[in-house]
């Protein structure tokens, strides 16, 4: 455990990650329960188990840094639905998740590139990113398997709709939490100049 208290911005960011992982686990857990047994349900079960594990990793990470998690309200995923409209079938759920998982991976990758990153945070990000790669893969494969059912054009249009929403939500989140983003960017610039 570290003796110095961590920066409040870092505490907020790690708590934000944790809240998103919890929301993802609960969402997929509920969905998996309502689905018919089969390969998609099997992979979704693994997916929500991973997300729950990730939430635990972030809790443990915060504790190792001498901090407790912040209780945050609305998760990033909630804003997706508000921006893109509610997914109304399994294909749309997988499409929105695919877009979301790519955003998560990109954010974690960006965070992990900070050179003065605490080793505990770095280790946590690395562990989670290994799982996230598989999440993106299984959903991509599942969507490919739905082409006959839903139509390739419909799937492509759905992904495009959620990509557009993703850009909006990310921009809105960045504006709303500018101070946190500045914290990350300041660290990035410091590292770039090294």
């Amino acid at each position: 455990m570290t003796s110095e208290p961590i920066d409040e911005n870092l505490r907020w960011i790690l708590s934000f990650y944790r809240t998103s992982e919890i929301s993802g686990a609960l969402f997929f857990g509920q969905l998996a329960r309502s689905m018919r047994p089969g390969p998609v349900q099997r992979d979704m079960t693994q997916h929500f188990a991973d997300e729950a594990q990730h939430a635990h990793y972030w809790t443990a990470c915060l504790e190792q840094l001498g901090a407790s998690a912040l209780r945050l309200g609305q998760s990033y995923q909630d804003q997706y639905i508000m921006a893109a409209g509610m997914p109304v079938n399994l294909m749309e759920v997988l499409a929105i998740t695919q877009v979301f998982e790519k955003r998560v991976f990109s954010q974690y990758a960006r965070h992990s590139r900070l050179l003065d990153l605490h080793p505990v945070v770095k280790k946590t990000l690395t562990k989670i990113m290994d799982d996230e790669r598989w999440h993106i893969e299984w959903i991509r494969d599942a969507l490919a398997g739905m082409r006959d059912d839903y139509g390739e054009d419909v799937i492509a249009a759905t992904l495009a709709r959620f990509h557009a929403a993703d850009e909006d939500v990310y921009a809105k989140t960045a504006t709303e939490h500018q101070e946190r983003i500045d914290y990350l960017m300041a660290h990035s610039r410091r590292n770039d100049s090294k």
Partner: peptide, 27 residues
């Protein structure tokens, strides 16, 4: 409390009644 609950409900109801909707139908 969360819009995710609505998504779950609509998908579970489609499973229950064995129907599938498109985005246009529920817009």
């Amino acid at each position: 409390n969360s819009s995710f609950v609505l998504v779950e409900m609509i998908i579970e109801m489609q499973e229950e009644f064995d129907v599938r909707f498109t985005q246009q139908e529920v817009t």
